[in-house]
């Protein structure tokens, strides 16, 4: 993978993706020594993404510096993102950025020379999540001749946008299941059509569920709806229970980027299809591989003797 930064899943070729996944598969057994410092810049709350990047860097033998919450940082004093990243690049060998505005990572990457990973930009992209999603799919179902359902908030779901565009590199049929008000945004649809992807949209899971090899569930957020009633009604239609899964394949791979609220009932956790905790755990090896490759491209040598 020869990229300076990871900003969007659309920049990734099949070869890029497979290189990271192959590396991730072997990295836990024999991690390279990367005595590097990773800067964590999270302008929005995060548990999984932040902790798994933190763990990944430390398992590579490096360390992390963390901006902390926005409330305790100079952002509160009105500093621009462009200034913040230019300051922090002096403290770190690579940066991970989550920000509430779309395009934030793209902009930030233009102000820094160290590798920058987009860990979520508003309703835009979340490409490192996609790499761990694809790793999970590859481990459980393979990445060829695949029928994938992606369900929930497709409009604002950045994990959905990144996954959908990355899947166009593979032999995958994509089904998008959502209420009409939360269908894929025009820009993602445009990219999928440009890639000639096979895309079908549904408002109902029932009819398509038996065909799926993978079902990727995302959270429908309360704030997307004008009132509580409407939210409850819609959210209820897209909830996975053991009964829902009676019509699914036995080897369905049921995924969720987490956190879930009640899109997947806890009783599903014990079923063989439940793959979301394994998926979350895959964040560490995949991010180890990603960081290792970006640092290597940036000339940060292994063994800790080059900085």
């Amino acid at each position: 993978m020869r990229h300076d930064h990871l900003i969007t899943a659309t920049q990734l070729s099949r070869d890029d993706i497979e290189t990271v996944l192959d590396r991730a598969a072997e990295i836990a057994d024999d991690p390279p020594e990367r005595d590097a410092v990773l800067g964590l810049l999270f302008f929005e709350p995060s548990t999984r993404t932040k902790m798994s990047f933190d763990a990944a860097m430390k398992r590579l033998g490096g360390t992390t510096v963390d901006m902390g919450s926005v409330d305790s940082s100079s952002v509160k004093k009105g500093e621009t993102l462009a200034d913040t990243v230019r300051v922090v690049e002096g403290y770190a060998d690579a940066l991970v950025l989550r920000h509430p505005s779309e395009g934030a990572a793209k902009m930030a990457s233009r102000f820094v020379d160290v590798p920058l990973v987009n860990a979520g930009d508003g309703a835009g992209q979340h490409p490192s999540q996609t790499l761990l999603d694809l790793y999970t799919i590859r481990e459980n179902a393979g990445l060829d001749d695949l029928t994938v359902g992606i369900m929930g908030d497709l409009k604002y779901g950045r994990t959905v946008h990144s996954l959908a565009s990355a899947l166009t590199n593979f032999d995958a049929r994509q089904h998008f299941i959502s209420p009409e008000s939360l269908q894929l945004p025009r820009s993602v649809r445009f990219d999928l059509h440009q890639e000639g992807a096979q895309v079908r949209e549904h408002t109902d899971l029932e009819a398509i569920l038996p065909e799926l090899d993978v079902l990727y569930v995302t959270r429908i957020q309360r704030e997307r709806f004008p009132d509580e009633n409407e939210y409850r009604q819609v959210a209820g239609q897209y909830r996975i229970t053991p009964e829902t899964l009676e019509d699914a394949k036995d080897d369905l791979v049921l995924m969720h980027p987490l956190p879930r609220v009640d899109e997947i009932s806890p009783e599903v956790d014990d079923l063989p299809q439940a793959t979301y905790f394994e998926q979350a755990h895959n964040g560490v090896p995949v991010r180890m591989a990603l960081l290792d490759m970006l640092l290597e491209n940036a000339g940060v040598e292994t063994g800790g003797d080059s900085r």
Binding site: T80, A82, H99, S101, E102, G103, M107
Partner: peptide, 13 residues
Amino acid sequence: PNANCITTADEPV
């Protein structure tokens, strides 16, 4: 046209 785009925020771009 996207009000949440980073270019519409107070950034030097």
